[in-house]
Design a protein around this nucleic acid. Structure first.
Length: 957
RNA sequence: GCCCGGGUGGUGGAAUGGCAGACACGACGGACUCAAAAUCCGUUGCUCGCAAGGGCGUGCGGGUUCAAGUCCCGCCCCGGGCACCA
């Protein structure tokens, strides 16, 4: 770059020429529709006959959010990987679908609107344009007709339609699948408990609503009054404040839309097994679903004949060791069971009969109710951070009530404590300190009895024993190992009707509404009874109303204030006159034109990304979300689903779980033909880069830091180097545009693929880029005369050795490409090209038989340069659909091989022998070698290990 | 704390239990050049040795095996996930 232009040959492959070539081919691919993937039928079927006999391949990237900051070089790693794979598959007999769309709803555009008054749609469209430009410059082979944005009404119309499918169905536990809601009515009619026939219309609707896969519930949400919105858990800091603005965030119940994902817990778990995903992602999903087998046990409360407290336990076998009980502080039965006075005090005995610690931290004198009230106050104001900092420190308070242990009728005290969570199991536990460490810690703190019911191993000096052992102190369970004891206890509980074997999940139903503007409106209105009514399909899409003021309604910064979603500001839109048909089963309610109130919440950002891959299949269909023909063609063959899905591990749980859930609902309702959406999932690594922090620990702009003698400076101040994921927040982003400018897009593609295996994170190092750039330059120079720009190839056959390397390379590159091992594929191409460079140096020309195949092999990785070489070699058509080279088996064999000769496992000599020798011949050849004979001289060979073609190991005495 | 990944030259990385370090960057030497850049050729794990040749070497300590980066056991460190889930 520093040399004067006059010194550079006009046709050298440098950044200038690369940019020219790249712009040219990006235009040609666009005008020639090179990457249009034909559907079998319908609007996008043009050209299908030509590929009808090919296999389909659906390669997919995780849906990007078009950020205003533009891309950095870390973003496209996965996109390049899928593009290389897609191009390779296109050259090996596949009809390849590869497209890119934009997950464009979401908070950043809305917050930008708050600051500037610019409508989120304007911001979003501008961001999408920027991202399209940056991705186009990478030469990605996407079908441009299939590029969609979630914010497009023609797209979110179908997101709303899918919501209507969820709203319009229920989960049949007997058939273990979702069914249309109309099929619920006969079930309710047949159920004597439902009393269906006698129910008035409103109660029928409420009953049916309680079965829907999309239902309304009072769910606790992260409500931030200062920002006027709910926040996702990710947007709340560990201190319980808003990530943006540091405002207080409160947990408070609000009526919210919920999706019944828990109905699918078992299927989401079981169907994970056969998928071609990494085990670690499967484990993360399994943990998130959190299936636990155990039992529910009913405990009677002393003095309250009609009250039972149900606990969930995974260890019913330890019931004899349950010496107390704990409820979550907010458990609904707490107030009911709490007596007016501490036991003992009421009959004139000394209040001090109850250990002081049981009576809580404050307010003991005023009785148990006050002690509980104070404890609840104390736990409510504890932040998440406090709770973590306290670690095992257990707090709680005695309710004053006792329960009866059903196995031995022993009275056991009932406590409340914040180590029991209302959100899991039944919100109540039987505490077994001998077999549970948390219960042990609590028992120590509160001087509660500990009864071992599983014999710990000899010499056990630990506290709670969680391992397997024989039951003790457990009457009819004694001497049974844990698994058998569990089963025996469950049988007993069920016989006595005081418990039942059951399964519990950590997975919660999905809170699906947000008090935001920039999201999909719900296709729901409310009638005069405040019950939800779905809008008919013909009214879709429900378009976002235009508002000019995005400022949320700032209300008092306290827990009680009621949120007003931004859509409430669209006053003309909020109410609507409609004549909506009532379902027959709802009886005589409604009908006729009425005033309805619209749902003012919007859907969360996950909604659009739950099904975008299906819309890629048939993006312009105005009658269906996807045509059955297109869906079956691209999704159904083989094991079913997307053939390759590449994305970051940050979506290991939420997106992948939500999308699988929606897919299963659509599957149950007959809209898609496979139970799982993504057959093969591949997680690409991150691009890391050095970060620099100043004395205050703040990140400084990495590009402005200079190194001097191994130390780093920003101006005159020294800064500390660390490493982190590349990104705006760490101020270490490298823009792809800079790399295009200095080297070209092919070099960037090749570098990102060469850095290391696709699934590993790797540090960005701009100085390494020159290596892959040199490869392209050398390849170019081997094919093209740098002075004239004309090809310099010969039809003369090459030498046998080069030809063998050529075919070995083809063989290896094919395997590597299939395995997504692009870094080793590139290394193979380097080797072949280096050999070609030697041949050119020796003979003055490049043999065409090598050049043609090398160019084709390079094409998936560096497509622009390969296309240009291909054209200059005399081809008129793009090589995108050419056949990838096939190795000739005749040239994969070698005449001689070098084998190692070891003595006692150490290599002492190497020798060249004919290939294909058997063991005896190999040993004979080794012994015949002079050097080996010398080594073996005077030694006794006790054993000889022969690995033909590899090595001989003489074990000598 | 629990559950996953991962520790290989100066650097990124490569190796179906069978010759550790392919390929690339960097460094060093050479050719070309007035010179530099670019390009091309060579050397490059550490170490002892003039050499021939030897010793050591894949986070640490053991083990299995004719043979271990790879398999087993016990640790250390780094990255990620979950976290009072009964």
């Amino acid at each position: 770059m520093s040399a004067p232009d006059a010194d550079i040959p006009q046709h050298r492959y440098d950044a200038r020429l690369a940019n020219e070539i790249e712009a040219k081919w990006q235009d040609r691919w666009q005008t020639e529709h090179t990457f249009w993937a034909p559907n079998p039928a319908g609007l996008l079927s043009e050209g299908f006959e030509a590929v009808a006999d090919r296999k389909k391949l659906f390669a997919l990237d995780m849906f990007p959010y078009p950020s205003g900051a533009g891309l950095h070089v870390g973003h496209p790693l996965g996109y390049i990987g899928t593009d290389v794979y897609a191009r390779f598959k296109r050259m090996t007999g596949h009809n390849v679908l590869h497209a890119m769309g934009y997950d464009a709803f979401g908070l950043p555009a809305e917050q930008y609107a708050l600051q500037t008054g610019q409508h989120p749609r304007v911001t979003t469209e501008s961001n999408i344009a920027t991202m399209r430009r940056q991705l186009r410059a990478l030469g990605l082979g996407h079908d441009p007709r299939r590029s969609i944005a979630t914010t497009d009404p023609a797209y979110y119309r179908w997101t709303q339609w899918i919501f209507l499918q969820l709203f319009g169905s229920w989960y049949d536990e007997d058939l273990d699948r979702a069914r249309p809601i109309v099929e619920l009515i006969p079930v309710l009619e047949a159920d004597p408990e439902s009393n269906w026939a006698a129910l008035p219309s409103r109660e029928r609707r409420e009953l049916v609503d309680s079965y829907r896969l999309a239902y309304l519930d009072d769910a606790p949400v992260n409500w931030c009054p200062a920002l006027g919105t709910v926040l996702s858990n990710e947007e709340v800091t560990p201190e319980g404040r808003s990530d943006r603005g540091n405002h207080p965030v409160y947990r408070r119940p609000l009526k919210q839309w919920m999706l019944r994902i828990t109905a699918y817990a078992d299927r989401l778990l079981a169907d994970l097994e056969p998928l071609d995903w990494t085990e670690s992602i499967k484990i993360m999903q399994r943990n998130w679903i959190g299936r636990s087998e155990g039992a529910e046990v009913d405990f009677a409360v002393e003095g309250h004949e009609d009250t039972v407290i149900t606990v969930f336990t995974t260890r019913p076998d330890t019931l004899f060791g349950a010496t107390y009980m704990v409820l979550a502080p907010e458990h609904p039965l707490v107030d009911e069971i709490t007596p007016a006075e501490w036991p003992g005090a009421s009959i004139g005995e000394d209040i001090n009969d109850i250990p002081a610690s049981w009576r809580g931290l404050f307010g003991a004198e005023a009785g148990p109710a006050e002690a509980i009230r104070r404890y609840r106050e104390f736990t409510a104001q504890k932040s998440e951070l406090d709770r973590q900092a306290e670690g095992k420190e257990k707090t709680g308070v005695f309710t004053g009530a006792f329960a009866t242990n059903p196995v031995n009728d022993a009275p056991i005290p009932i406590f409340i404590a914040d180590y029991v969570l209302m959100g899991y199991g039944t919100g109540a536990i039987m505490a077994v300190p001998a077999q549970d460490q948390r219960d042990w810690d609590f028992a120590q703190e509160f001087d509660l009895p500990i009864v071992r019911t599983v014999a710990p191993p000899e010499g056990w000096e630990g506290e709670a024993f969680l391992g397997d052992g024989l039951a003790i102190n457990s009457d009819f369970l004694d001497d049974l190992p844990v698994a058998e004891a569990k089963q025996a206890m469950i049988t007993w509980l069920e016989e006595q009707e005081v418990g039942v074997g059951t399964v519990t999940y950590k997975l919660r139903d999905w809170l699906f509404s947000r008090q935001r503007y920039w999201g999909e409106p719900f296709p729901i209105v409310y009638d005069e009874d405040d019950l939800p009514v779905s809008l008919p399909e013909s009214m879709l899409p429900v378009e976002l109303p235009e508002v000019t003021d995005f400022e949320p309604e700032i209300v008092a910064d306290d827990v009680e204030s009621v949120p007003a979603p931004p859509l409430a500001r669209a006053e003309q839109w909020v109410t609507v006159e409609l004549d909506l048909p009532q379902p027959e089963w709802a009886g005589d309610a409604g009908g006729g034109t009425k005033t309805y109130r619209r749902e003012l919440n919007t859907m969360p950002q996950w909604a659009g990304s739950c099904w975008y891959y299906l819309r890629y299949l048939d993006p312009t269909n105005e009658n269906e979300f996807v045509s059955p023909a297109a869906e079956r063609y691209w999704m159904a063959p083989g094991p079913g689903g997307v053939d390759l899905y590449v994305g970051g591990v940050e979506h290991a749980v939420l997106h992948l779980l939500y999308a699988r859930f929606w897919h299963k609902v659509l599957f149950d309702l007959g809209h898609v033909s496979t139970p799982e959406p993504f057959q093969r999932l591949f997680n690409q690594g991150y691009i890391l880069a050095p970060t620099f922090t100043d004395a205050r620990g703040m990140y400084v702009e990495a590009s402005e830091v200079v190194e001097r003698d191994g130390r780093f400076f920003l101006g005159d101040t020294e800064v500390q180097r660390e490493h982190g994921k590349m990104g705006k927040s760490l101020k270490n982003a490298v823009a792809p545009d800079d790399i295009y400018r200095d080297y070209g897009a092919d070099t960037l593609r090749l570098y990102e693929m060469f850095m290391g295996p696709l699934d590993a994170s790797r540090p960005w190092n701009t100085s390494d880029i020159i290596g892959v750039h040199r490869f392209l330059q050398r390849l170019w120079r081997n094919v093209i005369d740098e002075q004239t720009g004309e090809p310099r190839v010969t039809v003369e056959p090459t030498d046998d050795e080069t030809r063998r390397l050529l075919h070995r390379t083809i063989d290896a590159v094919r395997t590597d490409m299939d395995d997504l091992s692009f870094n080793t594929a590139i290394a193979r191409l380097f080797e072949l090209n280096n050999r070609l460079t030697q041949v050119v140096a020796e003979t003055g020309d490049a043999p065409e038989e090598v050049v043609v195949l090398l160019v084709l092999m390079t094409a998936p990785l560096a497509p622009h340069a390969a296309e240009e070489l291909w054209e200059r070699l005399g081809h008129e058509q793009s090589l995108a659909h050419e056949d990838f080279p096939t190795a000739d088996p005749a040239w994969l064999t070698v005449e001689t091989v070098e084998i190692a000769v070891q003595l006692n496992g150490k290599v002492r000599a190497r020798l060249t022998v004919a290939s294909g020798l058997d063991e005896a011949a190999t040993e004979a050849a080794a012994r015949a070698d002079a050097r080996v004979a010398e080594l073996l001289d005077g030694k006794t060979v006790r054993k000889a290990i022969i690995v033909p073609g590899r090595l001989v190991n003489f074990v000598v005495g």
